[in-house]
């Protein structure tokens, strides 16, 4: 027997506050909504703004989700991500416009069918474009951040010009399908039908992504790869293949986001994806690089800030999201839910 005293470590209880620490980011969204309620004062304005904010947030999340995984998994900074948003919007909207008799009919089924086909076409094209983008543009510059920034910016410009070549340089205005126009009235507030649909779609994408990441083997490999890619390879998985898959899926999701954003604005331009990238990068950074959950919360917060501040103090709206990013990074310099890097 050892002469050493018995090893009996004492366990001090963690304070209530510290135990809530992990949930803090999740609480930010309801806290912001509540804050908005008191600041705005009017129930109906607050409700309209909140639905609009959540719809915007969901669409930004759909665009950002792929980008954060791509960055987390292979340390690739893709400034060309906006290209997929633009291409998705043009392909999706063109498809729906081509199906004009379905989109124009006062039938929800036909309208949703038209939009569904538009979304499918957009995701298919942006998925294939993502695959080509990864092969031609990203692959030669693995591990070199500066080159990645330069060449993906170049890729973005080329894709934008191809859009101009095909669809012309002018912005295209159009109307939403018949049954997605207008609003429903709830508690005295006008809630646009399309925004409610956008919230539902965004939520569905988030739940589906979480299920894939948490419940499937490929999700397990992606999560492990974001944390320590070298070890995933040492276990026998071809991370390069997984990355290509994630890149294609992320591009297709950006395409979906593009279609959704196009129908939200009822106008599309070749530069729309590029314009969105500022918000998308803010979301990825405040969410924590590589974190889908973080991007989700970040996107909702960006949407809420933008809409509330634009209503309360329009002049401040321009800096609201930068201010939000600054505040979050002062609180958590790695973003709200950073994926632990163990490389």
């Amino acid at each position: 027997m050892s002469d050493a005293p018995d090893h009996r470590p004492t366990m001090a209880a963690v304070s209530f506050g510290a135990r809530l620490d992990w949930a803090a980011p999740w609480l930010m969204v309801p806290a912001l909504i509540l804050l908005g309620f008191f600041a705005i004062g009017s129930m109906s304005s607050w409700l309209t703004l909140t639905v609009s904010a959540l719809a915007m947030g969901m669409m930004i999340f759909v665009m950002a989700s792929g980008l954060t995984l791509v960055f987390g998994l292979m340390d690739v900074i893709n400034f060309g991500h906006g290209a997929f948003v633009s291409v998705g919007a043009f392909v999706g909207v063109s498809t729906v416009l081509a199906l004009g008799h379905w989109a124009g009919a006062p039938s929800l089924v036909l309208n949703l069918l038209a939009v569904g086909l538009g979304v499918l076409a957009a995701m298919l094209v942006t998925g294939v474009l993502g695959w080509i983008f990864e092969r031609v543009i990203i692959r030669p510059v693995y591990g070199a951040h500066l080159k990645q920034i330069l060449i993906t910016m170049g890729g973005l410009i080329v894709v934008e010009q191809v859009i101009v070549m095909i669809w012309g340089p002018d912005e295209i205005f159009f109307a939403r399908p018949e049954t997605l126009k207008g609003a429903i009235t709830f508690a005295g507030a006008a809630l646009e039908k399309y925004r409610l649909l956008a919230v539902a779609v965004g939520l569905a994408v988030f739940v589906a992504m979480r299920l894939v990441l948490r419940r499937t083997r490929i999700g397990l490999i992606v999560r492990a790869g974001v944390e320590n890619g070298e070890m995933v390879e040492a276990l026998g998985y071809r991370l390069g293949m997984v990355f290509v898959g994630v890149f294609i899926a992320g591009s297709a999701l950006a395409g979906l986001g593009g279609v959704m954003w196009g129908f939200y604005q009822e106008v599309i331009t070749a530069g729309m994806g590029e314009d969105m990238m500022v918000l998308v990068f803010i979301v990825v950074i405040i969410g924590g690089l590589g974190s889908v959950e973080g991007a989700f919360i970040g996107a909702l917060m960006v949407g809420l800030m933008q809409n509330y501040i634009a209503f309360l103090e329009p002049k401040a709206a321009l800096i609201s999201n930068i201010a939000l990013m600054t505040a979050i990074l002062m609180w958590r310099p790695q973003g709200m839910m950073p994926v632990v890097k163990a490389k």
């Binding site: 492990a224 070298e230 390879e233 040492a234 276990l235």
Partner: peptide, 27 residues
Amino acid sequence: ATSARARLGIGYVPENMGIFSDLTVEE
């Protein structure tokens, strides 16, 4: 490639342990 070597039957325990800390022990 590393993954091919692993699949040939080499198990590796790195110095930094290479644990995936966001995953459960079971995962």
